[in-house]
């Protein structure tokens, strides 16, 4: 389960990626942040951001709140 959730529903890319990038330095290393984002580009761009920034992309889930993407802060 994620440690916290960022709700980016209704936001177009790159806004969900920016929201994740802003939050990540504020949480302790090891924290899992779930990004709720219904913009289809998030499915591509959140994993790509993790790769570019060396953060861990844990996967996506499609729950009652719509598509969600879990990211763990690794550094």
């Amino acid at each position: 389960m994620p440690d916290e959730v960022i709700d980016c529903r209704g936001q177009r890319c790159p806004l969900p990626v920016i929201a994740a990038a802003r939050r990540m330095p504020e949480v302790p290393v090891g924290t899992v942040v779930r990004v709720l984002a219904d913009d289809p580009a998030a499915a591509v761009d959140i994993p790509a951001w993790c790769r570019m920034r060396g953060q861990e992309f844990l996967g996506s889930v499609n729950g009652p709140d719509g598509p969600a993407y879990d990211v763990r802060r690794t550094h």
Binding site: R12, C13, A41, V44, P47
Partner: peptide
């Protein structure tokens, strides 16, 4: 190939298939 530039508001299926950044 960014989604905001397409009429469907979906990112390029090519960038998506490659798993590379699609915005900007």
């Amino acid at each position: 190939g960014s989604s905001c530039t397409s009429s469907t508001l979906r990112p390029s299926h090519v960038l998506e298939a490659m798993g590379v950044l699609s915005h900007g």
